[in-house]
Design a protein around this nucleic acid. Structure first.
Length: 201
DNA sequence: CACGGGATCGTCT
DNA sequence: GACGATCCCGTGT
């Protein structure tokens, strides 16, 4: 059970890292309130050549600049004016890759997550979907750009030595990017087979 | 269960 | 000034 280090995130294979994140644990600890869940769904976004990526053609703006940092920092942005979507930046500095974490299976601090979501029952809509997952974990865009590998950072990803058989990894097109032309059908969304905490079938 | 629409605001044109 | 890597609720079946 340890915090994933920078080198885990600094390979150039963003698709491979997206698969490798399945079965790891996304953890937050804000004001001594620890919440976490097992990552069950991810999507890869690959900078220059991916029309679905905010940093397509190396587009560098105030919003996208953190994607150009070395792997291991958080890229969090506001979507539809409401939802704060959490990504982890990967690759070396200057290469704008990121992975969207879309869903977790709640494991720690479940009551805290329910409170943040205003729910009193435990069901997949607590954390199935990138917007609601962030809300349950207390993540918002104020944390964009922070390292998730520094000891002491309030957001990190943990390896709890769970083994996930390769045949349990499914893939398909990414969600909500139909505008991305020839990139829209790339199978860069990954999820754990049969897991009820995944956002979509 | 499928759908259709509204919420809501930062970001970029 | 348009739109989005979403979600939720209302309607109809």
């Amino acid at each position: 059970m340890f915090r994933l280090p920078d080198h885990f995130f600094q390979s150039t294979d963003v698709v491979g890292i997206s698969r490798a994140l399945l079965g790891k644990f996304l953890v937050t600890n804000f004001e001594d309130r620890l919440t976490a869940g097992r990552i069950v769904e991810t999507e890869a976004y690959r900078g220059p050549d991916d029309k679905a990526c905010h940093a397509h053609l190396n587009r560098f703006t105030k919003r996208t600049q953190v994607m150009f940092e070395a792997g291991g920092v958080a890229y969090i942005y506001l979507c539809y004016g409401i939802h704060h979507l959490f990504n982890v930046v990967t690759a070396e500095a200057g290469m704008p890759h990121a992975i969207l974490i879309r869903a977790i299976e709640p494991t720690d601090g479940i009551e805290i997550m329910q409170e943040r979501r205003g729910m009193n029952t435990l069901k997949p809509q607590l954390t199935a979907g990138p917007g609601v997952m962030s809300k349950a974990l207390g993540i918002d865009k104020a944390y964009t750009g922070i390292s998730i590998t520094d000891p002491g950072s309030p957001i990190w990803i943990e390896d709890r030595q769970e083994v996930l058989p390769p045949e349990d990894i499914c893939s398909g097109p990414r969600i909500g990017i139909d505008y991305a032309e020839e990139c829209k059908d790339w199978s860069w969304r990954f999820w754990i087979k049969g897991n009820r905490w995944v956002s979509k079938k």
